[in-house]
Design a protein around this nucleic acid. Structure first.
Lengths: 336, 336
DNA sequence: CGATTGCGCGAAACCGCTTTCACGAAATCG
DNA sequence: CGATTTCGTGAAAGCGGTTTCGCGCAATCG
């Protein structure tokens, strides 16, 4: 459709104006060391003069490298209404661009191992894929077998050796719970996220660990299950209150549930933080807009994306990569 | 990097097993009508049998069509912490995928007309570009001149003939303000967004229009400027209260400012909605988590993305396109 | 000092698909 | 019924890079 107002320079022209062969142009443009400095200079000059920009498709066809990295979002729970993934993605995109790579966004149900997405990824259309979430990793295992570089954002279930990046959920939960104790709470409860997710489990573990370290005795009655939603937080808190354990502090596994919990507390005629202190997780907008403002565990989400991209780039370079766990940090506001 | 475990079928093989020429294979695969049904069938059979998948790069090189649509986000205000754009993007991605197109995400400051992004877009690397926001449209004008299909999400400033999609800000603000009147408010104020944005201006216009239609007399003292942030909403509301116009209702141009306004109202010892009713705009998570729950103007954000993608596809087909304005809807909760 | 090695470089094949061109056969025309 | 169109098709020339191969030359070796 687009007309070629500026008839795009090619290797042929560069080669001619630089007085070298196209092969040499290619070498220079791909950083081959074994080229005489003089020619290198000549080529670079020609490139600048002609405003040359490499043609991706041609390059991809010849080399097999597309310069494209897929970011795959299983469109069930994900991006809708959750700023988290968007933020991660922007971090990824930034880093990839700096490395001459483009971000191909695929928001789609992951379906079977041979849905269209799977074929696309296996068909060599991209140089690598970064996945969000991970309920089923059959597809990923398959891709791995094909040597497609993969990075997972979030901790995978199987302890396969997938390269992944994640926030330190355990540490964050540990710190949050300890903070509640240090503020004088005696009976600290937890509202968990979906325990089937690794993040949900890790946050519960952190909470338990804090109990163990504090010398306090934990009670199963102080543990209530949520599913990350605000409504589940409200319901879980209501249950916690009913049990009459004298709960005076609660760590909720995300901010949304914290807000729900605060509503339940208020409905019970109690006050935050005077009667019950609350700490969330994520430090999302919601934490900042809540009243009273919510104390929460912050994750550096952009950094998470950047780390994912860096892991991908390392793989592309053929380096061995280790999973990366990012530190979380407690942001103290009014609720605890 | 990825090894070819399955040595990818090519036209050559298909042509051979179907007993036709490669040219015919191409015709069939690109929907050329002028091919004998028998051959068409033969080719399709061969394709299925061999599990053939077209090689994008090769196709792009030969045809000049990349099958890639860029989604460009000016990384200043945008994606960070704002679920809005992410949601739009997921709508775009879904529709593009259904049409065999891929979404290339570019999160980056738009800088000058000849930054790297500009070059990328002008270099024929993509078949079209969808832009979010629009502070400066110099780049876009330039791209348009090159015949690159463009769609803008949000209303552009210049009344150039860019194809764009947007939510009916004016109508939403009108409905919200009228609703406040109908609930008995006599002195309805507005906290505007950045007036330099078309959305900010349109929402103010809708508010003014409601005043005109209602027969009430508007007062400049009831208009306070915000900048979309929660803090600006709080400050604006404080000013509104000071002016002592007996304000009893306020329409804020987005949810974040509404939450800020509610905080200010509470700090002034007044109550929502008993003393002052509040309506926001966007119906974001924040509206749902606020207490009392915020009445707000909902936009169908996914639909907005889908519309953008559809406009793009129409252009790719060479059709003439009209801007598309999507209806907004008042979601009534507790604050008004 | 003749023989071997290594380095820098150009010629040319190639990546896989698209598209122009021309040709033979079938359909339409005068 | 010969002449002109129309239609379906294959051969082949690209599209714009990358990469292998081998050559000529200078450096190194015996």
């Amino acid at each position: 459709m687009a007309s070629k107002s500026a008839p795009r320079a090619t290797y042929a022209e560069i080669a001619k104006t630089a007085g070298v062969s196209e092969a040499t142009v290619s070498r220079v443009l791909n950083g081959d060391e074994n080229v005489h400095p003089d020619r290198t200079k000549a080529v670079n000059a020609a490139v600048k003069k002609l405003g040359y920009k490499k043609h991706r498709a041609a390059s991809a066809l010849a080399s097999g490298r597309t310069g494209l990295i897929a970011v795959v979002i299983d469109d069930d729970l994900s991006i809708f209404a959750d700023p988290f993934w968007a933020t991660v993605t922007s971090g990824i995109s930034r880093v990839l661009m700096e490395n001459e790579l483009q971000t191909l966004l695929m928001v789609t149900p992951l379906e079977s191992v041979d849905g269209p997405v799977a074929h696309y990824l296996m068909g060599g259309e991209v140089d690598g894929a970064i996945f969000f979430q991970l309920h089923k990793d059959a597809l990923i295992k398959r891709l791995r077998k094909q040597n497609l570089p993969i990075v997972i954002t979030g901790t995978p279930h199987s302890r396969s050796d997938f390269p992944f990046v994640d926030t330190d959920s355990f540490g964050g939960a540990l710190a949050a719970t300890k903070h509640l104790f240090s503020r004088g709470c005696k009976h600290v409860g937890i509202i968990t996220g979906d325990i089937d997710t690794t993040a949900g489990a890790a946050r519960l573990d952190g909470y338990s660990q804090a109990y163990r370290e504090s010398g306090h005795v934990p009670s199963k009655k102080l543990i209530a299950a949520g599913d990350w939603s605000m409504e589940s937080g409200r319901a879980a808190m209501a249950r916690l209150l009913e049990k009459g354990e004298g709960i005076d502090g609660v760590f909720t596994s995300n901010d949304l549930m914290a807000v729900g919990a605060m509503a339940a507390i208020e409905e019970a005629g109690l006050r935050v933080p005077e009667d019950i202190k609350v700490i969330g997780f994520d430090d999302s907008v919601v934490a900042q807009t809540a009243r009273p403002a919510l104390t929460s565990v912050r994750q550096d989400i952009v950094a998470l994306g950047e780390a994912a991209a860096e892991l991908m780039i390392a793989q592309l370079r053929g380096e061995e990569v280790e999973p990366r766990i990012l530190k979380s940090e407690l942001v103290i506001r009014e609720t605890a």
